[in-house]
Design a protein around this nucleic acid. Structure first.
Lengths: 187, 187, 187, 187
DNA sequence: TATGAATGAGCATTCATTCAT
DNA sequence: AATGAATGAATGCTCATTCAT
């Protein structure tokens, strides 16, 4: 039931937004009553935190698997991370949107748990770029921190427009983005 | 007064979010009473629409100036647009955040006015990429629509992290992004 | 202007009700601004009182003309009063509806001016019935006070259903009612 | 509680009017808080509809009982209906006043449910008159529709003046009215 | 595990009214 | 004679939360 309620809530939060979704909406979507909600969650905010944790922990796990694979080059790892983020949209798109849009609604205490994890994800990419520079896979003059934000921006922004049902496949998008990042668009 | 209230509202919406900001918050920030708000705005949503229109119209105007300058190459125009978006953060950052985050709170009618404008901005960039391909400034095999989303993602995501008061200048960010896009990060 | 505003207000009060009509509605219907309203009326309630006074004074005047005509029998006077009330609907229907429905919205002081006038109208009819009994035009055993309420009920209720544009003429309605009252419906 | 709140609301609506009675007034009269009101009613208008339905359904039920009694003449049935309406004031007076005065505050949809019922009540009386004419209990030349409005006017208007605590009994009023209608006041 | 009744604070909005100009 | 800016109290309604059962 808790699981089911969380899933439904993610859908509702994605569609209507966290503040715009009432406990009433959530329990109606689950065919239960308000009391049931408070049996499983101590507050609406706690549910939001659950969703955040679940999303970022899963993301960090996947990222870790990629970067820890010593058989791959930095370039490949970069592609894999971008591909992971894009293909995530199909399965985790709603969670991702909630994660990026609704973080503001977490309380101080919860924020202080989430923000380091979000930063860790970014800094791992930054570390990958630095490693790539060192291994002469990437340009020496690259501003790694800013480039990292660029990579993240490209990938995360997809949540605003990418439709897994549409014409472009995840591979196509990930490939186009990685190509842009690696080779540039210059003729 | 209307002007002043709009400015204050943008700040509040950026900090707390649209739904989380009450009319009470807005009028207190302006030292007036609720009646005054409704003297100038017919609803909270109308104020949000005002903010959206102002932002996107200004953006389209700036974009138009850039792309209509026939003395510039496509590459330069691309840099100019990226720079414009980044440097916009200093003066228009709050508006931009409100624009990207709160669009969902507009009603159907207002959305149908804003979405075409937002699309127009994107399609103008896509047009610039296509023109660049034709003029052999950009790679022939570039997937222009996806690349456009990449460019926009990089630039728009800055609103989530770029701090104009911080170490990196707008030029630096814009230059790093343009370099990434043009030359790639490949060694 | 004051005249025009009063007329428009009567229409609005009839259609939407006194409480449901805002000063804003009234001034918009007159193409002026709120300030103008308060230049002519000291309050919304005062406007309502104006309408009440105007209506009841006119009614009393007409009634007086009828009962003071010594050439007429009591029966004829009764018919005349009923006809006057019914035909009033065409010209004064809106005022009448406002009068009967919205009296509750007058303040104590104003009520104490209106109620005696309304009672006077009724008591004049009661007096007419009593006079008719004495002159042996009406049944001796008639309960004049209750019968008066009956006559008033019939006539005043017309405001709830009588449509001057409809099939039945005022004469027809007044004639049917007077016949009912005088001869009854008994075979 | 819902029952209790409805009863209290009827009293308040009668005394102050629907629009002039706030939810605050209602909950204070019941010693509960606003939330409780909205737990039982989805809106103030819905409460009004409840009151309307309850009243008119009860009235139609009583009317039906009277007209379906084949042992009675049309005259007796007419008396019974008038008596029912007058004696109703003691038990249902407040509801009746709310019904007649506040119908305008129902929304379109609710009105379309109430109006046919109100018309049904009237048309049943009209049918009774027509039947009486046919059975030669009533005058052949009677204009049944208008006479019906006359009967209803007399009876319904009582809600504006009849005081069950006062000198005249319900029987007296009903008898006077029925006499007027049947025999007229003519000497 | 789950419900249903109740709370109380808060919200967007309306409105009659005031008043300097 | 009329305006336009502003007020402040009130209104209908929503909502996260509590708690006895």
């Amino acid at each position: 039931m808790k699981e089911k309620m969380t899933e439904q809530s993610i859908k509702l939060f994605e569609k209507k937004g966290f503040s715009e979704t009432s406990i009433q909406d959530i329990v109606e979507a689950n065919g239960v009553t308000k009391g049931t909600f408070y049996y499983y969650f101590s507050s609406k905010e706690e549910l939001l935190m659950d969703i955040h944790l679940r999303y970022i922990d899963d993301l960090l796990l996947n990222q870790e698997k990629i970067v820890n694979d010593d058989s791959k080059s930095c370039k490949t790892k970069l592609y894999d991370i971008i591909y992971m983020l894009i293909s995530n949209i199909k399965t985790q798109g709603a969670s991702a949107k909630v994660f990026f849009r609704e973080m503001r609604n977490l309380n101080e205490e919860h924020l202080s748990e989430i923000i380091p994890k979000r930063d860790q994800f970014r800094l791992t990419i930054e570390g990958l770029l630095l490693e790539g520079i060192e291994k002469e896979e990437f340009r020496k003059d690259l501003n790694a921190p800013i480039a990292t934000f660029g990579v993240l921006g490209m990938a995360n922004w997809s949540y605003q427009w990418y439709n897994p049902e549409g014409a472009a496949s995840e591979e196509e998008v990930a490939r186009t983005f990685t190509d842009m990042i690696l080779k540039g668009i210059d003729q």
